[in-house]
Design a protein around this nucleic acid. Structure first.
Lengths: 118, 118
DNA sequence: TGATTATTTAGCGAATGAGCTAATGACACC
DNA sequence: GGTGTCATTAGCTCATTCGCTAAATAATCA
């Protein structure tokens, strides 16, 4: 049987079309407050936590948290490592910063050098 | 009858709780590729375009585009001005940059000064 | 091996989201 | 005031999302 999850974060690519698709998955992942919260908690706890430690901090049930974590993983915003019988989720800080930061960066300059309505 | 739309972007506030709610609406608005695209097009066309000019650039029908624009407006990412019989949508660039930029900014520093798992 | 702990997967129901077509509102111009 | 243009709202359908509970999987320990 093939991999059960889509593609768990391709290591590197610069194809602009693929970049857009990546961004879509990432922004969809960021659309839920619990998932943004997971990322912040992860960050402020040093970048890695076990699934249990994360689940303990949220009101929803553990399976629900697992699903949120899967979505974050599919977006490449966290990666998971098995350690004994725990699974440790590791924040992919650079990727988060690069994708969202670059996107918001488009809006950085004063109005761009294109005539108002051509 | 009261206003037909929720609250169309409160002018200023610093209450952190309210900030989180604002962020939620904003990230939900950014979750759809067409809406992110609208913002970019708006930016690169000088920050304002009529509804028709925007709708003309998208494959979906005009009512669908209108709805996307309403969602962006409710998130405070665009504002709308009536000019004659057109409606001109104006990008709220600063607000977009501030909200998303500040959020991604949390992940800016190297791992924060909190012990790994306490 | 069988129990225990840690976590995920399966599957269901309610709510939300996004697309469409048709109908309506608002303004301008004659 | 009627007609054309610009745009929105209403109402429908289909698909997805998100929460839950119950069952399954995986590693460790007795």
């Amino acid at each position: 049987m093939p991999r059960s999850r889509k593609t768990p974060r391709p290591p590197e690519r610069r194809d602009p079309r693929a970049e857009l698709d990546e961004l879509d998955v990432v922004f969809k992942a960021l659309a839920h407050p619990s998932r943004r919260h997971v990322l912040l908690v992860l960050h402020f706890r040093g970048g890695e936590m076990s699934a249990g430690a994360i689940a303990a901090r949220f009101a929803c049930t553990w399976p629900t948290t697992t699903r949120h974590l899967n979505i974050l993983r599919d977006a490449g915003l966290v990666r998971v490592e098995r350690r004994g019988r725990e699974r440790v989720y590791v924040l992919e800080r650079e990727r988060l910063r690069r994708l969202v930061g670059d996107w918001i960066g488009w809006f950085g300059e004063e109005t761009p050098a294109v005539p108002p309505r051509a």
